[in-house]
Write a protein that binds this DNA or RNA. Structure first.
Length: 482
RNA sequence: GCUCCCGUCGUCCAGCGGCCUAGGAUCCCACCCUUUCAAGGUGGUGACGCGGGUUCGAAUCCCGUCGGGAGUACCA
């Protein structure tokens, strides 16, 4: 867990990240646990708990001459960079020991003033590095274009380059797989790996601070894989709503974790046979880093939604009922249509509703659009639907006829359908002219789950009560007689 | 500015010199089905950034160009 930046890595943000990973279904064999402990033989696994190791390594690196101290203040550095960028003496802002190391006098003066300075790693002044990336192939940089990184801040804390390089080796990391944004940081990482392995520097440091010894067979990580960035539909990187925050957001919106896993795997990759619908076993069996694409992928919520709807339709009704519950009891939203936990009758109602809504949902949170008529005592009629449907000629008659026929039908979907189907002929109008007014009366809206099923689910009493209550509204809405 | 990366339908992928008058998915449109909304079915619009090469033949190889992205922190 990379929490070397104390200002960003709060207890809360770390917890939220682990929760998000667990929800989406990513587990780990070795690493931190929720309760603050660790699991695995090469811990601790929070970088904030490994500071003694980093400091020990830094001392040894310093003693070996691989580093130098930089006493410049942030202001001095910023001014220098500004000058360089503007073309000051022609070069880009590359920090190299050759031009940056303090003279003996300057060093003495700064130290006398009490400055500690930060610790920079000396990178080669010339020559080049080539790293092999599983996704991008060979990439080469000239060392002259690479700045000497700060590996220890003036307050003594380790920075990401040091901490990660140490942990790569100390914890036996075999594959470094991360975003493309970290590609340019790779040269200094391999440089550090080499230094840490030289003369057993890391092993000695590990022993000195009492951390678990490395397995002797570990060398440097076998491979790097820099994955393409995921960007928004506007091609800008997913900054504002990224990371754990948006994962929790997807959860609230009712995306299934298995949908997210499937969709995310397809960003930058596709199985050989081109199938898009993959379960975990498929992905584990077929995923191949070498087949990952190299260009940034835009996150398309429409496509995600389509996938999600497909998976919702495949859930069995009992499972869907369970998954819907947190969207109805106020866990994820402000609307609480169910008690917590739901009563037996509430659960039965949701269970009965599931077959009616399953094929018309893309996200679980859409249940709040369908459920109210079935879970609420006092039905409110949607004004737009009233205006659109009740004003039509024949609406009150259709409702009256339904009221007349409903008390005596056998209470089944089929019988209800048969009874209502008989009405158009009797009234001399089309079936739509009957169904719509009845729909609005019973469900409160001109858009609802299938009518006969809805009536059946609501029950004879509730359906009749709603029809009777709506009748005067429909009569009122009729255009004045000429 | 400098360094590195990338460039096939709006979007995600397939394509690895001829099977491509470029395929699938999503989106959009039309039609069918239909009690509303969906779901489902059928069909359709839509792309190799540009310019040079190499080759009998290029989306596929090479060069250039343009465009996009990332990095350029005592953040990670």
């Amino acid at each position: 867990m990379e929490d070397t930046d104390a200002t960003r890595a709060t207890e809360e943000s770390m917890r939220s990240m682990m929760e998000a990973m667990r929800w989406i279904g990513l587990d780990w064999d070795e690493g931190p646990e929720d309760d603050g402990t660790s699991r695995g033989p090469y811990g601790p696994y929070r970088q904030s708990e490994r500071t003694a190791l980093y400091a020990e390594v830094a001392r040894r690196l310093e003693a070996s001459g691989a580093t130098y101290r930089d006493h410049r203040t942030s202001e001095e550095l910023e001014a220098w960079r500004e000058l360089q960028r503007k073309g000051g003496d022609g070069g880009p802002p590359v920090v190299k020991a050759s031009t940056f190391e303090h003279s003996d006098e300057d060093l003495a003066r700064r130290e006398a003033e009490g400055s500690v300075g930060s610790l920079r790693l000396r990178t080669p002044e010339s020559g080049s590095v080539t790293v092999t990336d599983l996704i991008r192939g060979e990439i080469t940089w000239d060392w002259a274009t690479i700045s000497d990184p700060v590996i220890e801040r003036s307050d003594g804390s380790a920075t990401y380059p040091l901490a990660n390089s140490v942990d790569d080796l100390a914890q036996g990391v075999s594959l470094i797989c991360r975003g493309e944004d970290l590609l340019s940081v790779t040269p200094r990482q391999v440089l550090l790996h080499g230094l840490l392995l030289t003369d057993g520097l890391l092993d000695a440091a590990l022993a000195a601070v009492g951390f678990p010894a490395r397995d002797a067979s570990w060398v440097a990580p076998e491979a790097f894989a820099h994955l393409p960035m995921v960007v928004g539909m506007d091609r800008k990187k997913l900054s504002k709503r990224h990371g754990s925050v948006s994962i929790q957001e997807f959860r609230r919106q009712g995306f299934l974790p298995e949908t997210l896993r499937n969709y995310l795997a397809l960003l930058g990759w596709a199985p050989r046979d081109g199938r898009e619908r993959l379960d975990d076993a498929d992905m584990i069996a077929e995923f191949d880093l070498r087949a990952v694409g190299r260009s940034a992928a835009a996150f398309d919520v429409d496509k995600l939604s389509a996938f999600n709807g497909e998976r919702i339709r495949e859930l069995d009704p009992g499972e869907l009922t369970d998954r819907l519950t947190p969207h109805l009891d106020g866990t994820y939203g402000e609307v609480a249509l169910l008690d917590t936990p739901p009563t037996d009758s509430q659960r039965a109602m949701v269970h009965g509703l599931v077959p009616l809504v399953q094929e018309r949902m893309q996200r679980l949170d859409e249940i709040v659009e369908y459920a109210p008529p079935f879970l609420v005592d006092e039905l409110e009629l949607d004004p737009d639907s009233v205006k659109k449907v009740f004003t039509k000629k024949g609406a009150p008659e259709a409702i009256e006829a339904t009221i007349a026929v409903l008390p005596d039908v056998e209470w089944s979907v089929e019988a209800i359908e048969e009874a209502l189907r008989g009405l158009p002929e009797q009234l001399g109008i089309g079936f739509g002219k009957v169904a719509q007014p009845v729909r609005v009366a019973v469900t409160g809206s001109s858009v609802s789950p299938p009518l006969f099923e809805s009536i059946e689910l609501l029950g004879r009493e509730t359906s009749l009560a709603r029809l009777r209550a709506a009748l005067p509204v429909a009569q009122e809405a009729q255009p004045a007689a000429e």
